[in-house]
Design a protein around this nucleic acid. Sequence first.
DNA 1: CAGCTTGACTTAAGCGCTTCAGAAAGTCCA
DNA 2: TGGACTTTCTGAAGCGCTTAAGTCAAGCTG
Lengths: 355, 355
Amino acid sequence: MTRTRRRRPTLDDVADAVGVSRATVSNAYNRPDQLSARLREQVLRVAAELGYPGPDPTARSLATSRTGAIAVLLDTSLSMAFSEPALSVTLDALAQVVDPHGHALLLLPGGSPGGPPAAQVLGAQADIAVAYSLADGAPALDSVRARGLPLVVIDQPLLPGVARIGCQDRLGAALAARHLLDLGHRRFGIFAAHSRITPGGGELTTEEAGAAALHDVRERLAGYLGELGPRGAEVVVHEAAGLSTDSAMAGAFALLGRTPRPTALLCMTDQLALAVVSAAGQLGIAVPGELSVVGFDDSPPAGWSAPPLTTIRQDLAAKGRIAGELVLRLLDGGEVPAPAEVPVSLVVRGSTGPA
Amino acid sequence: MTRTRRRRPTLDDVADAVGVSRATVSNAYNRPDQLSARLREQVLRVAAELGYPGPDPTARSLATSRTGAIAVLLDTSLSMAFSEPALSVTLDALAQVVDPHGHALLLLPGGSPGGPPAAQVLGAQADIAVAYSLADGAPALDSVRARGLPLVVIDQPLLPGVARIGCQDRLGAALAARHLLDLGHRRFGIFAAHSRITPGGGELTTEEAGAAALHDVRERLAGYLGELGPRGAEVVVHEAAGLSTDSAMAGAFALLGRTPRPTALLCMTDQLALAVVSAAGQLGIAVPGELSVVGFDDSPPAGWSAPPLTTIRQDLAAKGRIAGELVLRLLDGGEVPAPAEVPVSLVVRGSTGPA
DNA sequence: CAGCTTGACTTAAGCGCTTCAGAAAGTCCA
DNA sequence: TGGACTTTCTGAAGCGCTTAAGTCAAGCTG
């Protein structure tokens, strides 16, 4: 008991107790082949007796310059982020891939536009960053670059030297629009996800819409309009006021309250589409009798609504998996691969019908 | 260019470049009052020129023995975890509280029962751990203890020396049961959350139910049964096969398929209750005409269903906030406070009616 | 003007671990 | 039996930063 009590034992304490060098104890944990099995067992036993919980993660990180954590940069609060199944499915798939390699996710949510505050990013203990749908030019991305961390972006524009995975946003939107056009619709509403153009949501001109700060919003809009414009359809674009279900509902009522009411609504996410279906139900508007609705993502809830949602399917799990593989590859020192996109397809369910 | 290119600059490089000691550069970042404003600015300027992104987080952590991260221990995959709004709301509230103090969340999901693997926990770079609804005796908790990390548990049994926040599970369940009894119901079904008693879900005897590994499952069950038993009600307990919506639906159909069919269903979470409402809809069973359903949690979706859900409200955001405050307190070296519980109350909406 | 403060930096001792280049002690084989 | 390997373990140099204690000159007091 000469040694100060209360202090957690360190590698040196174990080394002293066993009577070997510190390096040997380290090897006992990290390179079992570097010492005899007997000695290793003895080291481990003494460590257990001393209550040594194994090498300190921070010290180990400093020595190896690897932290084992992946910083995930979000531009919303956690509950917002996870109320959109798209993110949780994607992130989960990512986690499944990196988990076996011992990487954990360090969540950096960002209330403000532009993702988490720069200081947070600069101080985050991570080997690599994954940015999910941040606005163009988010300061968080600069911080990542300043630190020289590898970066994987999901649903964001391509940046030089950065790995990217996205989906065929424009094509998907075009498919949705075409489907409704083919059904004979001519009076359209586009329900755009919140992209901070209008502070509190509301109607957008097509010019404003084209300037959305979020890559996928821009692309999907372009896809819708590119299809609708040439066919001379009447179209109004409405931006949601936020990411919450409440703002989705508010926007849905606004769109359905217009006269003349659109007969077809192109919704940029399933969450928005489900809000529309729900609002229509409350207003006594028959879906798909009087109103056709198409979503985007094909997230799990799309199949559960009544009627089930016609939507654009993208393989969210695949997106997450690919992101995970990109992470592993970059961590392994691999080259930045060419940007990839998961394919989309139209899934016709019950929320669309003839005009 | 004599200095090797490619190596990231360190504090020493900046110090050399400015011609001051390393400590001064450190102070420029951490204790502005320790040097003159002019020198500080010069240091920062040179740092910027050199492309020095500020003190390395890992090295700083080693020196200060603080990482700025909070390990969040979960016993499910991320997508499972976040498909239950209860968790995302709680965690978000927690994040809101700790965020301003510069703490990020390190997510340690655990596929297997018992939470994340011990090795993950031992290697996690965090100052404190928050465990959310882990099964009793989860090995992850032992690892936390072995490392001597402070611990805050949410919805788990009280452990010595550990801060705890929960909710009045038993009371809430009793309120729900009493409400239905008062409406005249006598044939009950209890839809229990997955607690790994039955491998694939299914019927439970009350003894089995009492031995559930999850604290809140046990408590709520006790609350239901404690109220129902003395009133001589007929009751069957069904455990969900998993945490997914699919298993919730399967369980709902199983419960509704019984003959005689229960007239009242006590569901341990809103997610289960919503599955029941949805299944009833598909089977043409009128709610609340032929079937009354009560949920638990009052998560946001409870208000959106048709009919809106009668449920037991617990203030999830408050729970998260309190957990966050506990975290800050423990990090501050504060004593472990007495365990707390957020209050519950019955919220009567449209899913319950007379027998 | 001696003695005390104050302000502005520097010195140097860590923080706890990894890892590379040996050293010591076998083992093998012709 | 001696040189060439192997196996097993040690020494020591970092990893990049923080911080308590110390130095030193300038300013203040009476």
